[in-house]
């Protein structure tokens, strides 16, 4: 028996919008730790890892570890039927081939339940080792989204370089080139407006902008984004989900032939 009650149901709606275009089908894993997901895109270039900790739910009952295979597009269709202020409860019985999403309006005058068919998904779980990153950049998520969108109108790939001068995003295409440099800036009114660069050593890596733009669909989840870079490791683009956990996107770099 599984019953997870999330008062801020809009978080789950936003999570689905953030990942449904990257991943088609995924197993949601439920354990005492929380509600989590790890999945790769169909070309195995990007990986998404989601954690919503059990403490973040108003009610969290998970009698035994459960893995539920869901089509994310179908799940998104169902969650779009929940109001932004609704409380969402996820329910499943042991051995059932369905999951139920229950939506309650804030004043309890409307209660809806949507039952969705589960699916068997054969996916392998990857071990993500702890790594020391050469550079970690924290910046406003809206700024990062803007840069990725702007650069993708010029080129297909972005070179992200961190030096002591700052973080540089560069692209080139048929019509020309573009460079955006963000310097460390901590003299801002609100902490989420800061750009903070922690660099152990300079690093420069190339990534496909198509994936970066897909990751920025998580922007509504967090005011800041943290980008971790190391030579010969996938980049990590992390959006913290307030008091609940995170959504992390990993993207393998492109290398010169």
């Amino acid at each position: 028996m599984l019953e997870l009650r999330l008062v801020q149901g809009s978080l789950l709606k936003k999570v689905l919008e953030a990942i449904k275009d990257l991943v088609n089908d995924a197993n949601f894993d439920c354990s005492a730790t929380g509600f989590s997901l790890q999945a790769m895109d169909s070309s195995h270039v990007a990986l998404v890892a989601l954690l919503l900790r059990s403490e973040g739910f108003e009610h969290y009952r998970c009698d035994r570890n459960l893995s539920m295979g869901m089509n994310l597009n179908n799940m998104s269709k169902m969650l779009k039927c929940a109001g932004n202020d609704d409380i969402i409860t996820i329910k499943a019985d042991d051995g059932s081939d369905t999951v139920t999403f229950m939506f309650e309006s804030p004043n309890q005058d409307k209660i809806a339940d949507f039952e969705m068919k589960l699916m068997d998904i054969d996916s392998e779980h990857l071990g993500i080792p702890e790594a020391e990153y050469q550079a970690i950049v924290r910046m406003p998520s809206s700024e990062f989204a803007r840069i990725c969108k702007d650069l993708s109108s010029i080129g297909d790939t972005v070179v992200i370089s961190v030096t002591k001068e700052g973080v540089k995003f560069s692209t080139r295409g048929d019509i020309g080139t573009a460079n955006v440099v963000c310097r460390q800036n901590t003299t801002v009114d609100k902490p989420e407006e800061a750009t903070v660069i922690e660099m152990q050593e300079p690093v420069s890596l190339t990534f496909a902008l198509r994936y970066m733009n897909s990751f920025t669909k998580a922007t509504p989840l967090s005011g800041t984004v943290t980008i971790s870079l190391s030579s010969d490791l996938p980049i990590v683009v992390e959006y913290k989900i307030a008091e609940m956990g995170y959504i992390r996107f990993y993207l393998a770099p492109k290398i010169e032939d």
Binding site: M40, S43, H44, L47, H125, L126, A252, I255, E256, D257
Partner: peptide
């Protein structure tokens, strides 16, 4: 020409 690497060449099952 740059070549796209895959996640599975960095992270292993487990």
């Amino acid at each position: 020409v740059s070549q796209q690497r895959q996640i599975t060449s960095f992270f292993s099952p487990g």
